[in-house]
Every structure is written in C-alpha cells, then in structure tokens.
Design a protein around this nucleic acid. Structure first.
Lengths: 208, 208
DNA sequence: AAGTGGTCTAGACCACTTC
DNA sequence: AAGTGGTCTAGACCACTTC
C-alpha cells in the first residue's frame, strides 16, 4: 500500500487525513500496518463462527488426520424443474452438479451434493476436487457475500447411507448451505454427515 | 458523555485526540455520537447469529403460533459424578435440574434438559417456567459472557421419544448449549428437537 | 540514513441541534 | 447564540524497520 507520505503527495491532503484513512482500513481488517515497515493488504479474514466448518479438508487435517475426497460425479446439466428452484434460476439454465464424499482417514465424514450456477463459475466442471474442495474454489472465484445455513436431523436415503457407510437406523445431520456472490445465489449444497461421527459447533463470546 | 470540548479541558489534550478517543468508542459500538447534539452511551447490542434461536418462546410466537411449556421437573440436586462433569464442578455441588417440553401450538418442538449452577442462580428452583423460559431468566440474572453450541443428529432414547411424541425411527437434532457468566460455566442444557419438525438456521453477510 | 507508522498539538471552518 | 460533532490542516517528536 502507499505510505502515508505517498498519500499526502498524491492527494494533497494532510498527513492526519491520510493516517485516518489507513487507520480505518486497518480497523476494518482490510490492511495491516506495521510501524517502520509499511501498510499491506491483509490476509483474507475468516468469516467466523459456524462458517469455520466450511473447509472440511482443513478441518480434518487440523485434527491430524488424512483427508481424502472421492468424486462421484461432476457434470454439467441444464436445470430441471427441481434444481431450478434450488438455485432460483429458469429451467434449462446451465449448472454444474457435483457429488463428492469427503473422508477423514478411512471414514466417510461428509457427502456433499452441490449445484453451482455455471455462469458464476465457468470452469467448475473441469476441476479436480480431490485436490481442492468446491468450497475453496468458490471462495476464491466468487467473492462470498452472504451465506445461509440450515441444519436438520434426517434418516438418510439408501444412496446416502451407502456412500457414508452408515448402519441401518443411523441418522444424518444434513446441512443445506447456500452462498451468494455479486448479488446472485451461486451455489446450493447439501452436506450430509453421520450423526454419530460429526458435530457442528459454534462458540461466541460477548466482547465488550 | 462529556463533549470533545469537555475532554480537552479535563485532560489537557488537543481536540483531535479527544475526537479520536470518542470516535473509537463509537466504532466499537460503545457510544453513539450525534452531530449538534452530543455523545451518548449506546443501547446494548444484540449478540447475533445463531444465538437468535435462544428464545424458543419468542421464536414460536414470531411465527404466529401459540407457545406452551410443560414443566416435567425442576428440582435441586447435589451434583452426581455425571452431572459434576457437565458443569465442571465438584461432586455434591448444589445444582438445579430442570426438564421442560416446549410446544408450538399442540406439537412438542423442544425437550430441554438443563443443569444450572445453584450459586449463580439461587432462585432458579422457584421459578414458573410456563411463564418465562430458563434461558430468558438466565440471560437476565447472569450476564451472558460466552456461549457454546454443539449440534448432532441422534436417535432419541425412549423417554425423549415419548416426550416429543416421535415415531419409531425418527431422529432428533440435539443441541448441547453451555453458557458462561462471570468467568464460570453456569448452565449446561440439552435441547432435543424432532429432526423433521425443526431446522436450525443461520445466515450472515460479509459486510465490507 | 531514509522511510515507516504512532501519536499529539493548536488551530480552523462547517452544518447541525438545542434552548 | 451557544454548543455539538465532522472534518481537515501543517507541523512536530518518536521508535522502529529497512537497506
């Protein structure tokens, strides 16, 4: 970033004004300032709370376990009557439809079925999701604007039970996760977890 | 609050310094400033997000439905080996143990089993929880400092299934909610919901 | 030695609120 | 008319980093 002195020269303002501008960018978490060194673009900030669960790969590795993804499919489709509703687009809109099973060590921990607006992420269909999660990719490609989560307990259907290696009668914690970018709903995902092997958690402090 | 000019006189600083101090209090949400009028202590801020689900009674009424609570028990106990672990206290510590079923219209929507540190809420045992939820009471009595949630999908035991009026094979969404006040863990609650009749939701925007 | 942010000062003009 | 916050200026001294 330009230094305070640079800004003074460039915009013909006093140093206090430049200082205040940079100080406010800092307090907004957009830049980092180091005395004696300079001002720099900040590392992207975590969005916080429940969203920390977004990157399943990092979460698993953070627990010291191997992470592995099995890509069941990643295809381009035209939105059907059902999927058009999910993404709030007209029937026939180009979308990607991926199904991935995420593993912690040898255990399936999340079944991810995701619908993505193709115009918002044109190369989604060509990606190798064993190397990077859809969420990581989307976070980079489409600046995250809004996220919505819904969570419920369900009995899995036979396909889900098979892919997650569940016993008969074992429930799943199913999260529906929708993300918006540039004013558009760009992704709708169902994330199903074995109820007994997975917990969502969130903690917050009142900081005043 | 003192005005900028007051602070200049009182602390022998320049106006810019007083201005910065008040501006920072404002951006921290502690005061509100009105040009031409003055600076004032801010209204307490909402804690936000997932915490909005805390008051089940208001949530149900907000949906236009009747709210009703059935108090199964509310007794004083000495912490057993099991409950002592939950509240992180020595065995034998005085605690309250309440069980309440919350209803939306005629349907049970939440089974709340709660353990409360008696020394933090001495009159908990005498309260009428058909009129006010434990959470409302605790929020008023013990200033909330930290909250932790964990959520999982489970198959209910027979007692839970009975109290929630569930069919065989129907899972529950069980939240474990712990709250801290004045540096102590004061409450441990299990909140069980019919998986098919209840969804947790949380949305957040990136606001920059 | 030159550059950086951290902090503070003493002054100014302004639109607005309050009485 | 007096008081309030909003904003800006031109200058200063400092500890620290960078080279």
């Amino acid at each position: 970033m330009p230094s305070e002195a640079d800004l003074v020269g460039q915009f013909d303002v006093s140093r206090m004004t430049a200082n205040r501008a940079l100080r406010e960018l800092q307090s907004a978490g957009i830049i980092v300032r180091r005395a004696g060194s300079g001002s720099f673009i900040a590392e992207p900030k975590p969005i916080g709370h429940m969203i920390e669960i977004r990157n399943i790969a990092e979460e698993i590795r953070g627990r010291g376990h191997d992470y592995r993804a099995r890509v069941i499919q990643n295809v381009e489709e035209k939105a059907s009557a059902e999927t058009a509703v999910l993404l709030e687009v007209p029937v026939g809109t180009k979308i990607f439809h991926s199904i991935i099973v995420h593993h912690e060590a040898e255990f399936p921990i999340q079944l991810e079925e995701r619908f993505v607006l193709a115009s918002a992420a044109p190369d989604y269909g060509t990606l190798d999701f064993t190397q990077l999660t859809p969420n990581e990719y989307l976070t980079r490609t489409a600046p995250l604007e809004r996220v919505e989560h819904r969570v419920r307990a369900e009995m899995p259907d036979a396909r889900t039970r098979g892919m997650l290696g569940l016993n008969e009668g074992e429930p799943v914690l199913r999260m529906t996760r929708r993300t918006w970018s540039n004013g558009r709903l760009v992704s709708h995902a169902w994330l199903s977890h074995p109820g007994t092997r997975f917990e969502l958690s969130a903690a917050f402090s009142v900081d005043d």
